[in-house]
């Protein structure tokens, strides 16, 4: 017998209102006819029209997506290797430094990461002659570095849960390490790799601070474009952009949740069938 936790439920409702009222308000005001972003002036979709016909926004979105895809893919490869290292290779020279290097970017203030990367690129350009200009390449390099450690934490915790016995069995039967990696380890942790990629992708797509330090003139990503507009105040077309973002992300998350739920159900059903066949 337990009393209903009325206080807890009340705070929770307040918390969710706190989470979602600002977003909902922004979505409502994206249909505001007035040029003053915060005063209601009738229903209108003109901000969507002006947003979608803005070539700058399209170019910035394209650049952001290119950087996010490339950096997430590289970060997933490197982050997976680092995760396997931490979970499977218990002892090697420099392990302490390695685990420090994997944790530090997680808690390093973004300003410092951004400035230190920029200092590196400027000094490299001066003494090595590369990179000659800042843009896609430098931003991607910086994004790979700080998003790979997020992939590492996901892979590491998944590897620590995974059963080592199958890997060891394959090794005992004479499989070479690369075959074990590609035939057993990677397929087993594939869902973790996928969620690592998604996380790296969204981190890259969302980043303002590090991008603003490592990019050069003419290479504006979508967050940087929003940043430069928003610094001047509230503008209605950003409301429209925000609404579209929330709708796309919401639909994506709902779809992912549905697919995950379905595959879980199917796996459960398969497991039940398998047990029945064995009986």
């Amino acid at each position: 017998m337990r009393r209903r936790p009325i206080f807890l439920i009340t705070v929770m409702c307040f918390g969710f209102a706190f989470f979602y009222i600002p977003i909902l308000s922004m979505m409502v005001y994206s249909f505001n006819g007035s040029r003053l972003a915060t005063v209601w002036g009738g229903f209108s979709t003109k901000w969507y029209v002006s947003l979608l016909s803005n070539k700058q926004v399209g170019a910035a979105l394209l650049l952001s997506l290119k950087i996010a895809v490339v950096s997430a893919t590289a970060a997933t490869i490197l982050g997976t290797m680092a995760g396997i290292t931490l979970a499977r290779f218990r002892r090697f020279k420099g392990r302490t430094l390695f685990s420090g290097l994997v944790t530090a970017p997680l808690i390093m203030p973004e300003v410092i990461t951004g400035i230190s990367s920029l200092m590196l690129f400027i000094l490299m350009a001066k003494f090595l002659g590369w990179p000659s200009s800042r843009g896609f390449t430098t931003v991607t390099l910086a994004h790979i570095t700080f998003s790979m450690v997020f992939v590492t934490t996901i892979i590491q915790s998944r590897m620590l849960q995974a059963d080592r016995a199958i890997e060891e069995a394959a090794m005992d039967l004479g499989s070479k390490p690369w075959a074990v990696l590609f035939d057993i380890t990677l397929p087993v942790i594939f869902p973790a790799i996928l969620s690592g990629w998604l996380l790296a992708f969204t981190i890259s797509l969302d980043d303002v601070v590090i991008t603003s330090f490592t990019t050069g003139p003419g290479n504006t990503t979508l967050p940087l474009l929003i940043w430069s507009k928003v610094k001047l105040g509230v503008t209605p077309d950003i409301n429209a952009l925000a609404t579209l973002t929330v709708l796309v992300v919401g639909a994506g998350v709902a779809l992912a949740g549905y697919l995950l739920n379905r595959s879980e159900k199917r796996r459960d059903a398969d497991a039940r069938l398998a047990y029945r066949d064995n009986d």
């Binding site: 969710f16 989470f19 979602y20 009222i21 600002p22 977003i23 308000s25 922004m26 005001y29 003053l36 972003a37 915060t38 005063v39 969204t202 969302d206 303002v208 967050p223 929003i226 940043w227 928003v230 105040g233 509230v234 950003i238 409301n239 952009l241 925000a242 973002t245 929330v246 992300v249 919401g250 994506g252 998350v253 949740g257």
Partner: peptide, 25 residues
């Protein structure tokens, strides 16, 4: 999921949402 969802939307836009709410008008 509702707690995590704002994570996946843009950080910048979440800050921006409050700029709209806190403004004078």
């Amino acid at each position: 999921m509702l707690v995590i969802l704002p994570f996946w939307t843009s950080f910048l836009l979440r800050v921006y949402a409050w700029m709209g709410l806190m403004g004078k008008n």
